[in-house]
Amino acid sequence: MTLTASESPAPPRPVPPPARRGSARRAWQTFSPYAYLAPFFTLFAAFGLFPLIYTAFVSLYRVELQTPGEMEWRGLGNYTALFGDEYFWTSLRNTFTIGVLSTVPQLVMALGLAHLLNYRMRGRTFLRTAVLLPYATSVAAATLVFAQLFGRDFGLVNYALGLVGIDPVDWQNGTVASQIAVSTVVIWRWTGYNALIYLAGMQSIPHELYEAAAMDGASRWRQFFHVTLPGLRPTIVFTVIVSTIGATQLFGEPLLLEGSISGGISHQYQTLGLYMYEQGWGFFHLGRAAAIAWVMLLLIVVIVGANALIARRRSRKEAGR
């Protein structure tokens, strides 16, 4: 960075204007960036910062939605209670398993899809746009349709399974089955989006590398592993981080699968986001819900931090090679 900066020529200076008008202009030049940024910071303060701080404040009290005037100081009680809360751990575990079940296949499939879309073929632009369509669908619409498909008695999925002689699966009540159902909706919605990001990354890999590899007798498969994948590493790190954050906050899909705020009769697919909602808007324990929100925030910060650390260590190792 510093190297390129010193090499580039200095920007041309404007002709100095007359002195009196100049001071006003200079003042405008100094302060106008703040004026331009003000709308963003106002909105951020009102809808980002304030809720964040207020949530932290609420999380230290016992507050019920029916009686918001009666706040009872609990200190860190809401947080310590979470550690002994079986449902909290269940939802944390579910968030993790659903996260893995949805993120891993999603990214692997996106990679393969991107690789295919990178070939020269007829209607390439159409196909590239088409894979983005699920992303443009609303969560609610997609989940409700999938809920019908995964119906136990009259669902299309069980009908298809029946054709090949498999007994109907209870996609709502089975722990693994219900988590697969939720993950399917996530995978369906996000695979195309990630494929396009990978595609953009692939197109920035110099073509000469492939030619050189081909000259050395590398097959398509080996080219993919030894040229494409290393070239995509920063892109992959990015998608992993974004998908992880998305998985940690997963909410709409599990809520709408059955419309159950408990994530099923045994909390079998209740995620952290859904548990927060159940506490806050199902049972009206606002203090407890606020504490869960903060734990989620800390969790995401830790995960992203760990991710960044691993990525940095890897790239340093690479540089040292």
């Binding site: 136990r152 008695d153 009259f154």
Partner: peptide
Amino acid sequence: AKLDQWSPQWNQAFAA
């Protein structure tokens, strides 16, 4: 019939 009251599947079951 193991249906959840007020669910869409329960609704379908009346006619079925």
